[in-house]
Every structure is written in structure tokens, then in C-alpha cells.
Write a protein that binds this DNA or RNA. Structure first.
Lengths: 216, 216
DNA sequence: ACAAAAAAGGGTATTTTTCCCCTTGTGCTA
DNA sequence: TAGCACAAGGGGAAAAATACCCTTTTTTGT
């Protein structure tokens, strides 16, 4: 950061009240300037594409947004603009999403109930040193490497099947819906019961809800 | 509102970033002053009890908070300080909670993605006219009165059964767990299928999750 | 190119779920 | 006191879900 130059910050958040208020807070710190605000990842990416030369010192990226959410935006940025420094902002401390944001390049992850003092510290730390992790996040990263061996990966077809299993359709109906033999569906089912350590379709539904494969 | 006097606003929200930023936004409007901020309903209520004479023109109350949430706070206020004008703030547009906040006396309900312009309008409308409802909320109130006649009441035993049905237990095991005949359980099941307009146990699980009878 | 692994499908048997129609006892009230 | 609502329990059967063991085809790693 050059002396006598305010750092340039972009806010991407769909909550206008928060977004606009946060701009005031950041400006009140004195050393930073909010140069743009966007309401979702899509318009933010459009801006980046149209202004490839724009100087951006930091992006504050909300995780939960309509149209294009924080994670998808982060994935795009990892591919196309790995130089961007991004701090993810969210209200929830869901381990999975935190890990995903960070493995996709986020330099920090702050909960929205962070105090303005910590927030200021995090902003400056990321701009200067390149990263800022709270204890919460560090703990999760540690926890992650320990449990990484037994991670479960679901294939696309299995995900589609799970979504259908979370309806009142019978397996036969699901098979027809997915243009597969009921026997193949039975195979998916059995394989999933095994992988997820469950015994009934009820267990599958509960798993899907807990892991946000379906929304209720 | 007396001329030449800024209206006195209180913010109750656990997200410090939002809370503090919002204060700046409100002050930037020029006509209002944020006299206090609290991080949950409990400390807000304590303040009210210790300062019964405090002049409060408006309370901005977050719905989702730890310790004492918006709804519980609203219920307390309805009993003890029905004079308070409260606008509920939330990120979610869940019909049930909106209805509950309003029936417990909230004078308005705003989503956090509201624009600052609408927000300003709502604040001033509530202070001056006493209420402000967006189309979203009005629609829900209308929807509510229309569907109120066919509201569903679940008995205690049915609730216990539903909780058990949201596990991998078979009905036989549930019966034994509840010390009832499997046939009685079958009766509960059939009656619930009928009342809730569902056809399978999967539907029952989804209903339970959606209506927060079970937590996942 | 070849072996291994994964996906798709088949057969059959058992258990669970779902449905429909029935009996009994209990308490309430018109 | 007759009538009614309701909780508890039951018989029997059809439909769906689950379990286990199997073959064929496709994909994939090397």
C-alpha cells in the first residue's frame, strides 16, 4: 500500500442495508475507500471483465447471495483472477462452506458479528500480509486435515437421485423420471446406504437435509 | 416528532458489523439519531427495565439473534412495552416468522436487502404513521387470513410420533419405544397422512423439517 | 491394450409401509 | 341415558422398500 493512497475496496453483498452501511463504516476508518458495491457475484464478475485494469486492493465477498453466490464467485475468481484478495463474509459458521471458500482462495473468513475493530484489523492484515484467519477458521482447517481421509464424494447422478428420494415419489417413479431402470436406482440406493452409513430412505432424506443437498 | 429534534432510534442486532454500520447509515439520513445498540434481546430488555423513562421513537429489531431472539423479545415487548414502535429486520422471508412478529406487535418487517431509500421511508413512516408494510408482508397477511380456517393442530402424542418417524426406526420399533401397539402407531400415521395431505413417510419427514418439529 | 473399477441391469426373497374396514372402552354432553 | 367423539387396538392384503447375489457393458488408469 503506497503512502498517502487509500486502499481500494469492493463490496459484494445482496443485503443493501448492510452493503451501504458497511461502506460508511469502512470509510470511517479513514485509510480505505469503497470504490464499488455489487449485489451478487454475477454483476461483480461482469464488472471485472469490463474493467480488467481496475486496481482492487480487497474484495469483501458475501457468501449467501442470490443469482451467483459467494462460493461460485470464488471459484470463478480462483480461475480467472487469482490475484484478487478476497475476504469472505457470512453469518454462518458452517464448516463445509468455510473450508470451501478458503480452498478456493479466500484470504480470510469473517462472521458478520465480528466487531468493527477486528474487522478493521482483518482488512489491513489481508491488504498488507495477504491473509487473516481467526481462531475459528484456523481450528477448522486443522480439523479438516485430520478428517480428510474419510471424506465422501457424491457423483452427479447420485445427487440427482438423492434429490428425487427426498420427495414422495416411489423408486419406480424416480427411475422413470431419471430414465433409468428401477434396478439401477436400486443400485444407487444400496451404494449410498453403504457410503453414508444409513439403513433406510428416511436416513437418506435426513442426510440430504443436513448437508443441504435439498432445501426445505 | 417535535421540530428540530432528531428521532431516537435503538438497534438490536448481534451482527456487530451490520449494527455499527447501520448506525452510520441512519445518522447519514440526518433526521435520526441512534441512541443505543444492543447485541441481543436480553440486554435490550435489561436496558428498558433500568431506563423506563427513556424516550425511544423506534426500535430496529433483528429476528435471528443468540441468547434471546427477535420473536421472544417482541413477545416481551408486547406484554410490557406495547408503546414501543418496532421494525423487525431479517434476512429471511419465512412466512411463519413474519406473521408471528407482526401479530406480536411489530409495526413493520424489512428484509436486509432492502434499499436504503425504502429503509429511510419505512423508518419515517413508522415513526409518523405508526406502521409500514411492504407488498411482501401485506401479501402474507392476506394469505394468512385465507388459510387460517384450515390450520392444523397436532396433539402431543402425534408430535412424539413424528419425531420418531424422522429416524431410521421402523414403525414397529417406534411402537415399542412409545409403549404402544404397532397398530396404534399405524393409526397415528394414517391420521397424519390425512391431515397433512401427504402420502408417504418421506412426506412426513419433509413436513417435520419444514415446520421445525425436528432439527437436522 | 489390458486389467481393474464403476455403472447398469437382473432375479428373488424378506421386511416395511400403506390402505381399508373393524371392535372395544372411556368420557363427555345434549 | 342415549349418542358421540376419540384413543387404542386389530385382521388382512397390496404396494413399496430393502437385502443379497448375480451378469453385462462402459470407463478408466497405466
Amino acid at each position: 500500500m503506497k503512502p498517502n493512497t487509500k486502499s481500494k475496496i469492493i463490496i459484494v453483498d445482496d443485503h443493501q442495508l448492510f452493503s451501504q452501511s458497511l461502506e460508511l463504516l469502512i470509510k470511517s476508518f479513514g485509510d480505505h475507500d469503497v470504490i464499488e458495491r455489487f449485489e451478487n457475484g454475477k454483476v461483480f464478475i461482469s464488472y471485472l471483465q469490463e474493467n480488467p485494469e481496475a486496481v482492487i486492493d480487497l474484495v469483501l465477498l458475501d457468501v449467501n447471495m442470490p443469482v451467483l453466490d459467494g462460493l461460485s464467485t470464488m471459484k470463478w475468481a480462483k480461475e480467472n483472477r487469482p490475484d484478487l484478495k478476497v475476504i469472505a463474509l457470512s453469518v454462518n459458521d458452517d464448516e463445509e462452506i468455510i473450508i470451501k471458500m478458503i480452498t478456493n482462495g479466500a484470504k480470510g473468513y469473517l462472521l458478520k458479528d465480528t466487531s468493527p475493530e477486528i474487522f478493521k484489523e482483518a482488512i489491513e492484515c489481508v491488504i498488507e500480509k495477504g491473509f487473516y484467519f481467526t481462531e475459528l477458521v484456523s481450528g477448522m482447517l486443522l480439523n479438516k486435515v485430520n478428517s480428510d481421509n474419510k471424506k465422501i464424494s457424491l457423483k452427479e447422478k447420485e445427487l440427482v437421485f438423492i434429490k428425487h428420494a427426498c420427495t414422495e415419489m416411489t423408486y419406480k417413479e424416480i427411475a422413470s423420471e431419471m430414465c433409468l431402470s428401477p434396478k439401477t436406482i436400486d443400485g444407487y440406493r444400496e451404494c449410498l446406504f453403504d457410503k453414508l452409513e444409513i439403513k433406510t430412505r428416511i436416513g437418506l432424506v435426513l442426510y440430504a437435509v443436513k448437508h443441504k443437498i435439498v432445501f426445505v
